[in-house]
Amino acid sequence: MINVLFFARIREQLGVDKLSLSLEEAGPTIADLRASLVADKDAKWQEVLGADNVITAVNQAVVDHQHALSDGDEVAFFPPVTGG
């Protein structure tokens, strides 16, 4: 399974904080996962997850769209950080 987490503005806009899907459903890379996530949802998902400034982390480290997924990965989508 791939566990997907959403934080802050993205979590609020999508109305969901986490979901799970199989590696087959998710696809081999982050770009594929993003496409699978927006595929059968309303336009809001494409707008929110397709935004240029969305940051993606796999197993708590920031990755790019070509990053290959492995079974059991924790994937997070979040906006630019604003702590401190």
């Binding site: 802050a8 503005r9 400034n53 982390a57 997070a76 979040f78 950080v81 604003t82 702590g83 401190g84």
Partner: peptide, 22 residues
């Protein structure tokens, strides 16, 4: 920490709540 640590601020103002932009 300001640019790498995953924290997010939401401000509550008289006009409503808003997420802070980076």
């Amino acid at each position: 920490l300001k640019v790498n640590a995953p924290f997010w601020k939401k401000e509550h103002t008289p006009e409503g709540a808003r997420w802070v932009d980076a």
